[in-house]
């Protein structure tokens, strides 16, 4: 009897350690990024593009990467929405009765979801070489949108799944077509959940480095057209961190801080949006 009790206490102790380990990891990561990033974070960093000698520690900032990342991820998110929302609606409104088929699509999406972004990046680059397209914002947007599409569809699908069949029937009984039901009733019913799903995809898009490594190129200018190459935040961090010069490395830390703040902001916003919508959380 006593042994049993000891065993439980021992494992409970391990459980506390595990929970603390996870919590501590997050705080350690965020803390160390803030600690190293704050000292070199300045207004110049976020408001100017790199000037001559920036990569030797001279003046300038990473506005090009911030704007580039925003362009890229907003573009990719919109492009993915253009396909993702119709697919998710199709699965939940038109195909609702073909349960096995829809579950097949879900299974397929879950498989796609796990494909590493580097594979998309390498493949995207090959296609670009084949078609003779140069590295550009457009190429990046297309690659990233392909990479986030399964994530977005699956997240939207989780939300749309929760629309009760009674509401579907009510809408049809009023004489609406299926597309009217889809766009006027289903979308409206699930707005907070949809917003969360889209923010989640946006977060993926802005944080991923491997898929844009070969497709967007890198430049010190803010792109003025989608055919121009662009810098992105993850790559700005990656490249600056590889520098032997201390000042440049410390800028990598503050760039990392900026990216972390953006990601935390997205997380907070989606939490606020979905506060009313806690019943069906999107799980990944």
């Amino acid at each position: 009897m006593k042994l049993k009790k000891t065993e439980e206490i021992f494992f409970k102790f391990l459980m506390y350690i595990s929970v603390s380990f996870i919590t501590a990891s997050l705080f350690l990561i965020v803390f160390s990024i803030f600690y190293k990033g704050l000292p070199s974070l300045s207004w110049e960093m976020v408001s100017e593009t790199p000037k001559g000698g920036f990569y030797f520690g001279k003046e300038g900032g990473i506005l090009n990467a911030i704007i580039g990342s925003l362009y890229l991820s907003i573009g990719a998110t919109i492009l993915a929405m253009l396909f993702g929302i119709p697919i998710a609606l199709f699965m939940n409104v038109y195909l609702r009765k073909y349960n096995r088929f829809v579950n097949g699509i879900r299974f397929f999406l879950d498989l796609l979801w796990g494909i590493p972004s580097i594979v998309y990046g390498a493949f995207g680059f090959t296609i670009m070489v084949m078609l003779g397209i140069k590295t550009s914002l457009l190429a990046g947007i297309i690659t990233v949108s392909i990479f986030i599409l399964p994530i977005m569809v699956r997240a939207l699908d989780e939300v749309l799944k929760t629309v009760p069949v009674g509401l579907f029937e009510a809408s049809l009984s009023l004489g609406s077509t299926r597309s009217e039901t889809a766009f006027r009733v289903f979308l409206r019913q699930t707005i907070p959940g949809l917003a969360t799903a889209i923010l989640l995809s946006f977060g993926r898009a802005i944080g991923d480095a491997a898929s844009v490594l070969f497709t967007t190129g890198y430049t010190d200018h803010i792109p003025t057209s989608i055919m121009q190459p662009t810098a992105t935040l993850p790559l700005a961090i990656f490249f600056q961190l590889g520098s032997p010069i201390e000042e440049v490395r410390s800028r990598a830390y503050s760039s990392a801080l900026i990216l972390t703040i953006i990601i935390l902001l997205i997380s907070v916003i989606s939490r606020i949006v979905s506060a009313k919508y806690n019943k069906h959380r999107i799980k990944f």
Binding site: I22, T23, S25, L26, L28, I29, S32, I33, K36, L200, G203, I206, G207, D208, A209, A210, P234, I237, F238, L241, A252, Y253, A256, L259, T260, I263, L264, I266, S267, R271, F284
Partner: peptide, 21 residues
């Protein structure tokens, strides 16, 4: 939220942290 934020952090941030700590 702690789990979700960990899941949402970009891999380059993990990389920076790895180099730092």
């Amino acid at each position: 939220p702690i789990i979700d934020i960990l899941a949402g952090l970009p891999s380059v941030i993990y990389g920076v942290w790895g180099v730092l700590i």
